[in-house]
């Protein structure tokens, strides 16, 4: 799992009963994500790196570690493709 992310500037989200409701102002729409994706969004919002997000997810969800890390990586990629999160530039990540 490479790279770190942040919530896109035109995105607002709220976690409600384990689901994430995400408003993408740039796209003009609203998305709903399940519990795991909601937690990933929350942890991105808290400024955690991809590695740290994977570590948290392994601690919090009851499933094999390898599968959880794959799910987290998949969700991050999906969220990036949907412009919900954006990849931090390498220099900013290391700052």
């Amino acid at each position: 799992m490479l790279g770190s992310f942040r919530i896109a500037s035109d995105v607002r989200y709220r976690v409600i009963d384990d689901e994430a409701v995400v408003v993408r102002q740039g796209e003009g729409d609203v998305l709903v994500f399940n519990q795991v994706a909601a937690r990933v969004i929350q942890l991105v919002g808290e400024g955690l790196t991809s590695q740290q997000i994977g570590d948290h997810a392994v601690d919090e969800f009851d499933a094999p570690e390898e599968r959880i890390r794959e799910d987290v990586a998949m969700f991050l990629e999906e969220l990036e493709n949907l412009n919900v999160v954006e990849r931090l530039p390498q220099d900013e990540k290391n700052a």
Binding site: R14, D18, E19, V21, V23, Q25, G28, D29, L31, V32
Partner: peptide, 18 residues
């Protein structure tokens, strides 16, 4: 679900959701 309900309301709040 409350998430779905919230999303539906946000999507139908004209002007301010832009």
């Amino acid at each position: 679900s409350r998430g779905e309900a919230t999303a539906a309301i946000l999507a139908t709040s004209p002007f301010v959701n832009r």
